[in-house]
């Protein structure tokens, strides 16, 4: 049965995270370091060591999840602990710092850590929320079924267009090849349809923006209205119906791509910022002891 990573094993890692946080806060409350709270007191070193080890362990998740042969816990358990202990990290680190900030490499490490955690929390949010929205959007089918249907529509359009003058074939083939729903992650996230189409206007061809097949459908309607031969007009009408069908199918596909992109995009912050954080952590520890 499916179980959310948050609910893994009766939320055991939530409790672990709460205990670790609670102990840190209690320690900070009780500790009387005879000086402003900072990373250099006994408690400061303790919390700092905890935080650093926790960061290394959290980053190790990226390695563990690729070790398919590993039997050190399940990946699901690791992820559950990764999420809860990661959320506990900023409290430990704040207490370590004694709430002292500045324009320096130490606060840089803190900022990078915060960004990693925020992006991770966003990742948790989308993983909990978007798979449901994805399947709702596809209406029970999966994406390849949607694409099969689209390709079928394309094939039939080509066949019908071959009965019409070359500009109709140009319309169909350019409409297919110049479709652009998700060249880049950014485009997918914004859900923009940058498709274009080649239309014959007068004696010449023009490249025209074709979001949602609008331009193609308008052009076909125009051609149909001008057409004097009823049989040809009927064929044009058939092509229009197919393109309307295509438009109906493209909408959920674009939404599918958008949701899929959202499921992935946070990792583009989470992973590179983690690398930067590990470097900043090293800088933090070294610089503090270079000028001890």
């Amino acid at each position: 049965m499916h179980q959310s990573i948050l609910a893994f094993r009766k939320r055991r890692y939530l409790w672990l995270a709460l205990v670790v946080t609670g102990l840190s806060i209690a320690g900070f409350w009780i500790d009387d370091p005879q000086e402003p709270a900072n990373g250099g007191t006994v408690l400061g070193y303790t919390l700092g060591t905890m935080g650093a080890l926790l960061i290394l362990w959290l980053a190790w998740y990226g390695v563990r999840k690729r070790r398919y042969a590993s039997t050190a816990g399940t990946v699901q358990g690791w992820l559950s602990a990764h999420v809860y202990l990661g959320a506990a990290l900023p409290i430990i680190v704040l207490l370590h710092s004694g709430f002292q900030f500045g324009y320096n490499v130490h606060t840089l490490a803190f900022v990078l850590m915060s960004l990693v955690i925020v992006s991770g929390l966003f990742g948790v949010y989308v993983y909990l929320k978007y798979p449901q929205r994805l399947s709702e959007n596809r209406g029970g089918a999966n994406r390849s079924a949607l694409i099969d249907e689209l390709e079928d529509v394309d094939e039939r359009s080509k066949r019908i267009a071959s009965k019409l003058p070359p500009e109709f074939q140009e319309l169909v083939s350019s409409g297919i090849s110049r479709l652009q729903l998700g060249e880049s992650m950014w485009q997918r996230l914004r859900g923009r349809d940058l498709s274009q189409v080649l239309l014959k206007r007068g004696n010449d061809y023009a490249v025209v923006a074709n979001p949602g097949q609008e331009a193609a459908l308008d052009w076909l309607a125009d051609q149909q209205a001008k057409c004097r031969e009823p049989e040809t007009a009927a064929v044009i009408g058939e092509l229009s119906a197919l393109l309307r069908n295509k438009r109906r199918l493209l909408k959920p596909l674009a939404e599918d791509l958008r949701l899929q992109a959202l499921l992935e995009v946070w990792l583009y912050a989470h992973i590179p910022l983690t690398a930067a954080l590990l470097a900043a952590l090293l800088v933090h520890i070294l610089s503090v002891f270079v000028y001890w």
Binding site: R143, I147, L150, E151, E183, S184, M185, R188, D256, L257
Partner: peptide, 8 residues
């Protein structure tokens, strides 16, 4: 063609 890997 319809859902090529996005450029990233």
């Amino acid at each position: 063609h319809y859902a090529a890997e996005a450029k990233r």
